[in-house]
């Protein structure tokens, strides 16, 4: 809808042109104010989208962004036939789906929990504390994991060794995904709960009273009053998270990588970085990167379709 409206203003019949000019005259100040942002987004967000064609062309140093001669699907075929293809797809899906399955419900649970606290000051202290890790950088977080999980010197590493978990967890194939996902929950659970707390604060107090009169206990109130009230927020956020989960993990996965956990920690984006930025195989890397865009988009479409069917909530 929005698109159609936009094009209409430019192709209006001659008789109405005067009004278009009039609107432009009236709004020229508004256009001037938004123009810098539009130009910036066109250059830095839309031109790279146009540059995706590099994946279908031979990279040519002199031609730059859009590449040289057409190469068709050569680089896609090269990637699909490479021995790394299925590993990369599996790792990418495994890490993002686990992040969603574990990381998405956690802030909902926390919000329901915090919402139960009646002691105002305690609630404030807990909130302030759990929001804090959201603001430390990814480098610091991974550095923290490294020093604390170190098998001989780290405080968590020593504790786990006492519990019978042997070996260096940071270099373990099996521990990579749990460490990645749990530290992600640790860092963002508090911050992500804010939006659900706001939704819970907006629940009609009459519903609580009605439930109490019906003799509901606290658990029943959570299940039958509070959760239904925040379902729309949950679904919208689930869709939004689906669209971005794959592209947000690059830095952390890259920093957590080492030669020993590589079989599980090499994902599409880190491989794109290595083939493209490090080894200068630009066309090949751009083609691999498109698989990421594709998976991202598919996840968004699937969840959006399900949400539309089940709860009649959708992004478009």
């Amino acid at each position: 809808m929005a698109l159609i409206q936009g094009t209409n203003t430019e192709t209006l019949p001659k008789a109405k042109k005067a009004t278009v000019i009039n609107t432009l005259k009236r709004d020229y100040q508004l256009w001037l104010m938004i123009l810098p942002a539009i130009i910036c987004v066109i250059i830095f967000n839309y031109i790279p989208m146009y540059g995706i064609q590099l994946a279908f062309r031979e990279y040519d140093f002199t031609a730059g962004l859009t590449g040289g001669d057409w190469a068709g699907f050569k680089y896609f075929a090269q990637f699909i036939n490479s021995h790394l293809f299925w590993d990369l797809i599996r790792n990418t899906l495994l890490i993002s789906i686990t992040t969603i399955v574990v990381g998405f419900p956690a802030p909902i649970a926390l919000a329901l929990l915090v919402n139960q606290i009646r002691w105002k000051r305690g609630k404030r202290i807990l909130q302030t504390t759990v929001y804090l890790p959201h603001f430390i950088s990814i480098v610091v977080l991974v550095g923290l994991l490294n020093v604390m999980l170190s098998p001989n010197t780290g405080v968590l590493g020593l504790l786990l060794a006492k519990l019978g978990v042997e070996g260096n967890l940071l270099a373990s194939v099996n521990a990579f995904v749990p460490i990645y996902v749990l530290s992600d929950v640790w860092q963002h659970v508090g911050w992500n709960s804010i939006i659900y707390l706001a939704a819970l604060a907006a629940v009609d107090p009459q519903l609580y009273d009605a439930a109490k009169i019906d003799g509901a206990n606290k658990w029943q109130i959570i299940r039958n009053v509070e959760i239904p009230a925040i379902i729309p927020t949950i679904i919208i956020l689930l869709i939004l998270n689906m669209g971005t989960v794959i592209s947000t993990g690059f830095e952390k996965i890259f920093l957590m990588q080492n030669s020993l956990n590589l079989p599980i920690s090499e994902v599409i984006e880190t491989y794109v970085y290595k083939t493209g930025i490090v080894s200068n195989q630009f066309s090949y890397a751009a083609a691999i990167g498109l698989f990421n865009t594709f998976i991202n988009f598919m996840m968004l479409v699937i969840v959006n379709t399900i949400a539309k069917k089940v709860a009649r909530i959708s992004l478009w």
Binding site: A2, G6, I34, V41, G51, Y273, G276, A285, F297, L300
Partner: peptide, 24 residues
């Protein structure tokens, strides 16, 4: 307004990716 909103929001869900941005 509506068209420009779409113009901005679209970049949240779709981007050129690492390599085209680097080339730019």
């Amino acid at each position: 307004r509506r068209f420009l909103m779409f113009f901005f929001i679209f970049t949240m869900f779709f981007n050129g990716g690492l390599i085209p941005t680097y080339m730019l």
